[in-house]
Structures are given as C-alpha cells and as structure tokens.
C-alpha cells in the first residue's frame, strides 16, 4: 500500500520521532503547562517554541554544513545537536 513512498529506515525514524515529539509535548503540556521566558534569542518563548526553533536551526545548520564543509558529516551532526540543545536550554 505504501510501496510508492519508497520508504527508508532513516526517514521513517525521523518522522516517527517528530510524531512522538508532538504527542509527547502535548501530554507533557497537559500535565505541566509550559512557562514563558526570555533568553538570548531576545524573544519570549515557551518550550514548544524553542523545540520548533531548535529543530529548524538544526536543519538549516546541516544544510550550511553540507554546503560549506563538505565532509565530516558526523561532526556536523554533533555540532548541530549542540546548537539545538543550547537553544532549548537558554533560548
């Protein structure tokens, strides 16, 4: 049925991860409502905003890494995750 979507394992993991993330954030938000704070980004965000910002920052960082560094992909992934974590914590 889904043969036409030419599934691969990495893509499946990413999308299931996003789904779990959204559902998890919803349940978490129900039991402990998110607090708004203002970090180094200079805008007021709650944790959902920061998850989104760190997610697209990671994606954009990876594109830049692939475009300008050309290689050492795992170093790039590590740095990208570090960047996302910094935004999540102090953004």
């Amino acid at each position: 049925m889904f043969n036409w979507m030419v599934w691969t394992l990495p893509v499946a993991i990413v999308f299931i991860g996003v789904l779990v993330l959204i559902i998890g954030m919803t349940i978490w938000g129900h039991y402990s409502p998110p607090k708004i704070h203002k970090g180094f980004l200079g805008i007021t965000t709650d944790r959902g905003d920061r998850v989104y910002i760190s997610y697209i920052s990671f994606a954009f960082f990876m594109i830049c890494w692939i475009a300008f560094v050309e290689g050492a992909l795992y170093v790039g992934v590590g740095l990208g995750i570090a960047l996302a974590a910094v935004i999540l914590k102090w953004g």
Binding site: W7, V11, V14, I63, A67
Partner: peptide, 30 residues
C-alpha cells in the same frame, strides 16, 4: 514523507532503488 525518501535514494522505480545518503544534498548545495 515521499520527497524525504526520494532525497536520500536514487530511485528508478519502487523495486529498484539505491540508498545514496547525502549525495544529492552535496550536489544541490554546490
């Protein structure tokens, strides 16, 4: 999701396809 699957493979048809990793991204960004 389908596009994301295409992006990391060289697809001829659903039966014959090759996993190429980030190859297309390297090509596109340069």
């Amino acid at each position: 999701m389908t596009v994301a699957n295409y992006a990391i493979q060289d697809v001829f048809n659903p039966q014959s396809r090759i996993f190429v990793g980030m190859k297309w991204f390297y090509q596109i960004t340069n």
